[in-house]
Amino acid sequence: MSGKNILIVYAHQEPKSMNGSLKNIAVDVLSKMGCCVTVSDLYAMKFNAAATRNDITGDLCNPQHFSYGIETMEALKKGYLCEDILQEQKKINEADLIIFQFPIYWFSFPAIMKGWIDRCFVQGFAFDIPGCYDTGLLKGKRALLSFTTGGTEDMFSKEGKSGDIRYLLWPIQHGIMHFCGFQVLAPQISYAPEYVSEQRRKEMLNNWAQRLENIWDEDPIDCTPPWYFQ
């Protein structure tokens, strides 16, 4: 682990939250192992989640009909992307592992984290056509989702009211991370921390710390499992 670069993309408004504690554990454990850990604290940064024309600082290719994907792809080539995107892309380039730390909102990322992905994972930087999935431009890097839920583990089971959580994660792990070439590690799920005992919350943090100590020994998961399509 020594010498590895870790980027933690963190989205929670409250530093004392469970997500804040999980983020702090990761910083502490990985730093002690000799990793260089960088945190993008999106709320603290007031990161702009909206993908707009303002993301391109130079002339547009087609000012009469704006296409965000085409314009940002061309702006990347010409050096016309705005500074906050370039700063985050530099962190991504340097990272061996990216940990996404967040609470599940409406079966997905918080908007600010989805906006970070929308704006930073530009065509020509994170993927191309061809140049996606196993040949995605971020291949060789690892990605891990660490998140909290509002519902219990039973609710997110195959028989639960919210359904099997693997189906919730498939468009994120496969449709975003795998699409861009990441090797995706199994998610770290902290179920319903607001509704469990203090002892259980401590166990969640300890389990995360113990996992991180051996994170580089883990094999990536299969992002296109046959069960999904049955």
Rank of each mutant, 00 (worst) to 15 (best):
Y80G: 07
R119I: 01
M18I: 10
K4L: 03
S2Q: 15
G140Q: 01
K158H: 08
Y133G: 05
G3P: 02
F156N: 08
N24W: 04
I172H: 11
Q188A: 08
F102G: 10
A143F: 03
G20N: 08
M177D: 02
I8W: 12
I85V: 15
D41R: 09
E198Q: 12
L185P: 08
G175T: 08
E194S: 12
M73C: 01
S31M: 04
L86R: 13
D96R: 03
R201V: 06
M73P: 00
N48F: 05
M73S: 05
L145C: 14
S197N: 09
A11K: 14
Q89A: 06
N24G: 08
M33R: 11
L30P: 14
W106K: 05
S40K: 04
N93T: 13
Q89H: 09
H178S: 14
L60A: 00
L137G: 08
V196A: 11
K23S: 06
G115D: 12
I56L: 00
G151S: 08
E88S: 14
H178G: 07
T148F: 02
E71Q: 00
D41Q: 03
F125I: 01
G124K: 01
C120D: 12
F229K: 10
K32T: 08
G136H: 05
P110C: 07
G3W: 05
K139Q: 14
T52Y: 15
S67H: 08
A26K: 09
S108M: 10
L137K: 15
Q173M: 15
S190N: 13
E198V: 13
F47H: 14
M204I: 14
Y191E: 09
Q230Y: 11
P103M: 05
E71D: 00
D134I: 10
W208F: 15
F156C: 05
I8D: 09
I6E: 14
D84I: 00
W208K: 02
I165Y: 14
D84P: 03
L138E: 13
M45S: 10
R142Q: 06
S40H: 10
R119Q: 09
I176E: 09
I70V: 15
D164F: 14
V39M: 07
F127Y: 15
R211I: 01
C120P: 08
D118W: 04
D41M: 04
D222M: 09
I221G: 03
E71F: 00
